[in-house]
Amino acid sequence: MIVTPTWYLVLAAALFSIGAVGMLVRRNVIVMFMCVELMLNAVNLTFVTFSKTLNDLSGQVAVFFVLVVAAAEVAIGLALIVAIFRRRHTGTTADDISELRG
């Protein structure tokens, strides 16, 4: 058996779906955020695989931009979590964020 690009792409789709489900299922903000990272990684795998099948470097270059964006997002996201935690000194689950509703 030969590993075809389709295998990679199906795996990436599976990882993306797991990340998306985790985003909906989990209430812990930090873990939800990790699920976003899972989704971004699935996208990276897709980019690199297409880059190989299309014999085109753009896909690999795209991964760099995703990495920069992910790093910036992590910095801001974790700063937000720290700010919230400082203010409330309680848990970090999404249920604690409940003052807004309607």
Binding site: P5, T6, L9, T49, F50, S51, K52, T53, L54, N55, D56, L57, S58
Partner: peptide, 15 residues
């Protein structure tokens, strides 16, 4: 079964 339907690269080939 046909995920990658795009054009093969003309300018930025891998090799």
């Amino acid at each position: 079964n046909h995920w990658a339907t795009g054009a093969q690269s003309a300018t930025a080939a891998l090799e």
